[in-house]
């Protein structure tokens, strides 16, 4: 047991948990915006996959991770807009249309990969950035401040999201539209415009999440996300529609995963238990929510399309 607590392993476990949390965090922050305004998008994983392929392919062709990230953003915006058209303007059943987008993304990203790339070829990853000063702190510096740049971007978006949702007029509109669209509408807030923006933000962040995953791994493969988009949606509920809570959920899920991996590597978890141990992140996430027993209510208008005068 003592073996685990060597400094190097402890640092690696924490750092690994943070890396695993990043795509989840990005995608669920985006989904938080949509859900706060009353729109559930189950298509996150599909958008992530297309963002991942787009990002990967761009880096493969241009060798620029930033152009790759930009492609992920572009794909996210487009698919976010498409999702908005479907769920806001066309008022489609939100669960079902999201599943359609998921299946489309899953198939299309694989098809494009097979036709344009073929066999997996590695690409360059995001550069590492040691935060000056902070990265020199013993232990903590190595755990938290010696990551690739996308990690800081993801965690930096948490306070930004909090600020937008809680302190800006746009954020007030989001919350109003999510709680009582009729009232918001009567006060002159455009429900449609607000939801278009939030769903597009959600798509954008999902696209970034996918691109971040692919570029950080430096590779693409069929179903690269392995349903992380769905976990991200679950984490929005875990975080009770609050960016900080969502971050807590993503970190919890990431840390339990990295701990399990580390325990398996060191043989603390016997090999015959490897699949049982792999259940841990999911079970602990549920248990954590049960124990914390929070009583947050979901946005009242979640999944309900808005029709003026309906």
């Amino acid at each position: 047991m003592n073996e685990f607590f060597t400094q190097a392993i402890l640092i690696a476990t924490v750092a690994s948990g943070i890396r695993l949390a990043v795509p989840l965090l990005l995608a669920s922050l985006g989904e938080t915006f949509g859900q706060r305004s009353g729109v559930l998008n189950l298509g996150v994983d599909g958008i992530m996959l297309l963002g991942a392929f787009g990002g990967y392919y761009t880096v493969l062709k241009t060798d620029s991770v930033w152009l790759g990230l930009l492609t992920g953003i572009g794909i996210g915006i487009i698919l976010g807009l498409v999702s908005a058209v479907i769920s806001v303007t066309l008022k489609a059943e939100q669960g079902i249309s999201g599943i359609g987008i998921y299946l489309f993304g899953l198939g299309m990203s694989d098809l494009l990969f097979q036709k344009l790339v073929g066999t997996p070829r590695p690409v360059s990853s995001f550069p590492k950035l040691d935060i000056p000063g902070l990265s020199d702190i013993p232990i903590l510096g190595e755990m938290l401040f010696q990551h690739s740049m996308i990690v800081y971007v993801a965690f930096g978006l948490v306070p930004v999201s909090m600020y937008i949702i809680n302190r800006t007029t746009f954020g007030m509109n989001i919350r109003a539209v999510g709680e009582n669209p009729e009232a918001a509408d009567s006060l002159g807030v455009s429900v449609v415009r607000t939801r278009y923006l939030t769903v597009t933000i959600g798509g954008t962040l999902a696209g970034i999440a996918g691109a971040a995953l692919a570029i950080d791994l430096g590779i693409f493969q069929q179903n690269l996300t392995n349903a992380q988009g769905f976990i991200a949606i679950a984490l929005v509920y875990f975080g009770a529609w609050r960016p900080a809570g969502v971050m807590g959920g993503a970190l919890l899920y990431g840390f339990v995963n990295s701990l399990v991996l580390q325990f398996k590597t060191l043989g603390i978890i016997p090999r015959s238990w490897s699949d049982i141990a792999a259940m841990a992140p999911a079970i602990i996430t549920i248990l954590a929510l049960v124990l914390v027993a929070r009583r947050f209510r979901q946005p009242a208008a979640l999944t309900k399309p808005f029709t003026r005068g309906a």
């Binding site: 791994l217 392995n226 580390q262």
Partner: peptide
């Protein structure tokens, strides 16, 4: 380290990181 999945590239990557740390 059996990660528990044939498809999870991210988990395989972190399993390799765990090996490196060990």
């Amino acid at each position: 380290n059996y990660t528990g999945s044939f498809g999870d590239v991210a988990l395989a990557s972190e399993a390799a990181q765990a090996h490196a740390a060990a």
